[in-house]
Design a protein around this nucleic acid. Structure first.
Length: 266
DNA sequence: TTGTGTTTTATTGCCTCC
DNA sequence: GGAGGCAATAAAACACAA
C-alpha cells in the first residue's frame, strides 16, 4: 500500500477528481462554488504517474480488482485509473507505429540504393554489349566479308530488348529480394495495414524504373513487382496482432526488444 | 505577458465479447 | 444488454519563445 496523500507539490494537486472538496475546499464557502462549477482537470502528481507507469509495465490491461486496488493506493477514482491506462495504451501504440514506420523507411531506402546501383550496372553492361557489337561489325568489314556467316551472326548485337529482358530478370530478382527483406524484417499487419506508407503520389514514391527500355508487358510486370499491392508487401500473418500492445499474458506482436517499455520517457 | 504548440486528462460514440 | 476496449476529439494544463 502506497500513500499519495502528501505528494502535493507546487501548483499541482493530487486530489482525486471527485473527492477534492474533502481536503482543502471543504469549507462551507467553498462547497457552493465546488458544486456549481464544473470540476477542473487536474494532472496526476509525478509520484502517481510513476506508480501507474510501473503498474503498466507489469500489465497493460486493467482487471477490475487491480483497478480498484490502484485507485485505493493512489487516492484516485477507479475511473481515473481506467482512463489513464486507456490513454497510456494509446500513447504506446502511437510510439510503436512511429518505430514501425522508421524501420520500413530505412528498409525502403536501402533497397532504393541497391536498385540504383543495379540500374547503373545495367547501363554499363548495355554499353559494353553495344561496344563489342560495333567492334565485331568493324572487324567483319575489314575482313571484306559483307555477309556474315552463322557463327558471326551469333555474335552480333542482340535484337532490341534482349539486353533489357536480361536486366528485367535481374530486376525481378531485386524485387523478390525486396519482398524477402520485407517478409523477414518488417512487422506484419493482420489487416494489411500501413499500405499507405509507400504510395504513388507520396513524396517518398521516388523509385521509378527505367521504363524506356521495357516493353509494355515488362513495364507492367516490373511495376507490379517493384510496387506490389499492400497485401503482397504485408502478407497476412496469423501470429501477429498489432492492434494489441504488449501484455504479460503472452504475445506482444512486436520484436522482443521493442517491449522493454524503457523507451517511454516523460 | 501573451500567443502558440504540446501533453495530459476526460468524454463520446462505436464495436466486440461474454 | 452490459462491460470494457479503442479511435477521435475536446479542453485544461503545461512549456516556451518572443
Amino acid at each position: 500500500m502506497v500513500s499519495f496523500e502528501d505528494v502535493h507539490g507546487g501548483k499541482r494537486s493530487t486530489r482525486s477528481f471527485f473527492s477534492s472538496f474533502d481536503q482543502e475546499e471543504n469549507a462551507d464557502d467553498g462547497l457552493d462554488e465546488y458544486f456549481n462549477q464544473p470540476e477542473k482537470k487536474r494532472r496526476l502528481s509525478p509520484d502517481q504517474v510513476r506508480f501507474l507507469e510501473r503498474s503498466f509495465e507489469v500489465e497493460n490491461k486493467l482487471e477490475p480488482d487491480r483497478k480498484i486496488q490502484l485507485a485505493k493506493d493512489l487516492g484516485l477514482q477507479p475511473r481515473q485509473v481506467a482512463i489513464w491506462f486507456q490513454n497510456r495504451r494509446a500513447r504506446w501504440k502511437t510510439k510503436q507505429l512511429e518505430k514501425d514506420y522508421q524501420a520500413l523507411e530505412s528498409s525502403f531506402n536501402s533497397l532504393r540504393a541497391e536498385y540504383d546501383g543495379l540500374l547503373e550496372e545495367k547501363e554499363k553492361l548495355k554499353s559494353e554489349v553495344l561496344n563489342l557489337a560495333d567492334k565485331l561489325l568493324l572487324k567483319q568489314k575489314q575482313n571484306g566479308n559483307s555477309e556474315p556467316d552463322d557463327t558471326n551472326q551469333n555474335l552480333q548485337a542482340p535484337p532490341e530488348g534482349t539486353v533489357d529482358s536480361a536486366v528485367a530478370c535481374k530486376q525481378e530478382d531485386l524485387s523478390s529480394a525486396k519482398s524477402d527483406v520485407l517478409d523477414s524484417d518488417s512487422p506484419r499487419y493482420v489487416d494489411g495495414g500501413h499500405s499507405s506508407l509507400i504510395e504513388p503520389g507520396d513524396s517518398s514514391y521516388v523509385l521509378e524504373p527505367d521504363q524506356s527500355d521495357l516493353s509494355q508487358d515488362e513495364e507492367d510486370n516490373f511495376s507490379k513487382k517493384l510496387f506490389p499491392p499492400p497485401e503482397y508487401v504485408f502478407p497476412k500473418n496469423e501470429d501477429a496482432d498489432y492492434t494489441n500492445p504488449p501484455s504479460n499474458s503472452g504475445y506482444y506482436g512486436f520484436p522482443v526488444e521493442d517491449h522493454a517499455f524503457g523507451f517511454w520517457s516523460y
